[in-house]
């Protein structure tokens, strides 16, 4: 095989129409980038200066300062608790929501739309925006953070769970209907076991995501490690900020290891 063979082989994969589509897409992409570059509101002098500024900043982070390490670790633990408790509550609440939002279990049209409405509003508002709202309501602190993460997670878990319910094998359901079992028992015996794997997988996945999310709640006053990070940055205490960042890195990596372990163990 020679180079030109390969070359021709490649392009033979695309019909002229597809090729036109591709060119059009690239052109569109280029135009979009051009438009954005040309009109974005930045001070270009700052942009050229950025590498120096970044270097300077990282320079000031070294060496990280561990004097407050015990406080940092304690607050990190609190962060884990926020993520865990919020995930647990979100999982419990998302069960009935998923039930409403799945076409094959929802009692009627109205409940279907109610379920979908809950999922969409929960999902499309970011945790931080939820946190802004709940800090305004509950005041700064961990409670606002937990509620914010919960509100965002319900949509995520509920949506995936609802899809899992819609995709179940309907034949066992039919078999239990034929035995004269009630609706609730059919759910308990034919639907729940089938969505269990998804349930665990989604819960673990969301816990892992929430661990990350809970590290930033503090920036809007909703508890967790973010508060310390914000404090260190505001006082230009970069060595301590570096310690916090390292702690977060370790936390997130540990979280991934734990969730990988749980996934293997449970699924």
């Amino acid at each position: 095989m020679t180079l030109s063979d390969l070359h021709r082989d490649d392009w033979a994969r695309f019909t002229p129409r597809q090729r036109m589509q591709r060119y059009a897409m690239f052109l569109l992409g280029a135009l979009a980038v051009g438009w954005a570059l040309g009109s974005i509101d930045v001070i270009w002098a700052w942009v050229w200066d950025a590498p120096v500024q970044m270097g300077d900043l990282f320079g000031r982070m070294i060496p990280p300062d561990p004097t407050n390490l015990d406080t940092i670790l304690w607050v990190l633990w609190e962060t884990v608790n926020i993520a865990t408790i919020a995930t647990a509550f979100a999982v419990l609440i998302s069960l009935p929501v998923a039930y409403l939002a799945a076409q094959n279990t929802t009692p009627n049209r109205a409940t279907l739309w109610l379920g979908r409405f809950i999922l969409v509003s929960s999902r499309s508002i970011n945790t931080i925006i939820w946190a802004l709202l709940f800090v305004a309501i509950f005041g700064p602190g961990i409670v606002a953070g937990i509620v914010a993460i919960m509100f965002r997670s319900i949509g995520f878990i509920g949506k995936l769970l609802g899809e899992a319910i819609e995709e179940i094998d309907k034949r066992p359901v039919e078999a239990l209907e034929a035995t004269g079992a009630s609706r609730f028992k059919i759910i308990a015996y034919a639907i729940v076991p089938q969505v269990m794997p998804t349930f665990w997988a989604v819960s673990i996945l969301r816990w892992d995501i929430n661990l990350r999310e809970s590290t930033v709640l503090g920036l809007v006053g909703a508890g967790g490690i973010g508060i310390i990070l914000q404090g260190a940055i505001d006082t230009f205490n970069w060595p301590e900020a570096a310690t916090v960042l390292l702690a977060i890195l370790v936390l997130v990596i540990l979280g991934e290891i734990v969730s990988a372990f749980l996934r293997r163990r449970i699924l």
Partner: peptide, 22 residues
Amino acid sequence: ARSFHPVIVAIIFVKAVGFGPF
């Protein structure tokens, strides 16, 4: 790149290069 929430990355960049879209 994956471990840090974009908001954390953002406050660091905001400190380094100033407020704004950059």
